[in-house]
Write a protein that binds this DNA or RNA. Sequence first.
DNA 1: AGGTGCATGTAAATAGTTACATGATTAA
DNA 2: TTAATCATGTAACTATTTACATGCACCT
Lengths: 166, 166
Amino acid sequence: MLTEGSASGYEIRKLLMERFGHFMRVSYGSIYPALASLLDEGLVECQEISQHSRPDKKTYHLTAAGEQAFVASLQQSPGRHRVRSEFLALLCFAHYLPADCLRRLLDEREQEFREDIAEADTWLQDDGAKAPAGMRFAAGFGVALLRAACNYIEENRQTLTPAHAD
Amino acid sequence: MLTEGSASGYEIRKLLMERFGHFMRVSYGSIYPALASLLDEGLVECQEISQHSRPDKKTYHLTAAGEQAFVASLQQSPGRHRVRSEFLALLCFAHYLPADCLRRLLDEREQEFREDIAEADTWLQDDGAKAPAGMRFAAGFGVALLRAACNYIEENRQTLTPAHAD
DNA sequence: AGGTGCATGTAAATAGTTACATGATTAA
DNA sequence: TTAATCATGTAACTATTTACATGCACCT
């Protein structure tokens, strides 16, 4: 997050959840300790800003060494992509679930997917225009998968809840 | 895994990786301790089978209480579906990566996806025919997303590596 | 009056992996 | 002969979340 400018721990989380939320999540419990250790290693520097009636805001920015380390770590990363889905695990045992429970599960998931699509589409049209190509690619990738998921659910849900009463 | 019959820790992992591998992973380091605690709670029972020139094989099966607990936990699960992708994170910073590195990243991922598709398709045609509808649904869901991912990569890779030399 | 956003951080708990330890059998 | 498969398990480590602790400002 710091490659695009300086930010506080709080802002880092906000940015990360907004842009990368659908494929990457972090909590404050990992951000603050991470910033502290990056500071120790000299990969970031910190400016404290006093604020009226709030805790001091600590704005972090990358050092030259920090940016180098970041680029190096990018190249080393295996770039894994993994899905962890209790949703699909649950569906594997659909025959153990009552029909209404199953229907709710599918509806909730589809709705969530559609919300994520809407959010990503909004970003692509607004901020996305100025963002690097890679960011648009990643957002578009997410949207493509989410759409495929929604289509699949709509086209195949009758195989799970066949001939249900209206 | 035990809902379909008894199995050893080793077999449980094998089954799980084969059928659920694309959305759920486990290592022996979590299976064996889990089986031990399920045994303590009376949710599974165990039969030891002596084997020539191998460690004894311990075959576990669900008790009635175990099956009840399983069904109850299914209904309580929020059924989350989450993606964790270093691949997409990396692509967000594509402008920091040399072109060949980027191309390799995309190729590797696409190839992996295609292998997963082939594997799931094979399962759907062979064992899938006899499996419960939910299992087929989950496998089909995985395939649909993987296909969408491959299509997206093919259709959009030129936005990341434009006009590259052959 | 109550919820959300801003803002920092720690401690405990939970989850999960990796490496180790052991070793025979079987297929390429 | 090399690797994979079968087979169990523990210990150390890494990662990550959740809950706690604190508290003002702003909007409805």
